[in-house]
């Protein structure tokens, strides 16, 4: 009977890890960055559990359990910190915090402008009371 070999689980773990890394590097919303980091942890967890399975012991699972605990703590603290940051700048954009740059260095600003927001649908208007709305001329004559 052909089973899924260890190698395939490791591939999935690697993909999740890489995607998480990309998200962490590219996305600018603090929360999305954090979610990406958690996804990297998931990739690692798959690796550990797969190794445990193919080694025939439970140490990998125990390790993942501790990782889970630490991730939970991390999530709690990180969310509290994110809240703090949000309160001071009213934004979740990580690029707003760039005070650690070299003295005299100009702050980085976004060059590319955002596209204009889609025009809002005009609300339907009611005619003033008592006035007959203009009717379009009927074109078809029966």
């Amino acid at each position: 009977m052909t089973a899924v070999p260890l190698h395939h689980y490791l591939v999935v773990g690697a993909v999740l890890f890489a995607l998480g890394a990309i998200g962490f590097l590219a996305r600018r919303n603090l929360i999305v960055m954090f979610l990406s980091a958690e996804m990297m942890l998931q990739g690692v967890a798959i690796n550990l559990v797969a190794f445990a399975r193919f080694r025939g012991n439970l140490q990998g699972q125990a390790f993942v359990l501790f990782t889970l605990t630490v991730a939970a703590c991390e999530a709690a603290i990180a969310l509290a910190l994110i809240l703090m940051l949000y309160r001071s700048r009213r934004s979740l954009d990580v690029s707003l915090w760039q005070d650690l740059r070299e003295p005299g260095q100009e702050p980085t600003v976004d060059e590319e402008p955002l596209p204009p927001p889609p025009p809002e649908e005009p609300l339907p208007k009611l005619p003033p009371a008592g006035v007959e709305p203009p009717h379009p001329e009927e074109t078809s004559r029966v």
């Binding site: 890890f17 890489a18 890394a21 590097l25 590219a26 600018r28 919303n29 934004s91």
Partner: peptide, 22 residues
């Protein structure tokens, strides 16, 4: 949506790094 959600920091380099690793 905030402006931060509409933008990415170095999308090409970031995906390059991630997929090279992968």
């Amino acid at each position: 949506l905030s402006s931060a959600d509409q933008r990415s920091r170095e999308p090409l380099l970031a995906s390059l790094a991630g997929f090279l690793l992968l």
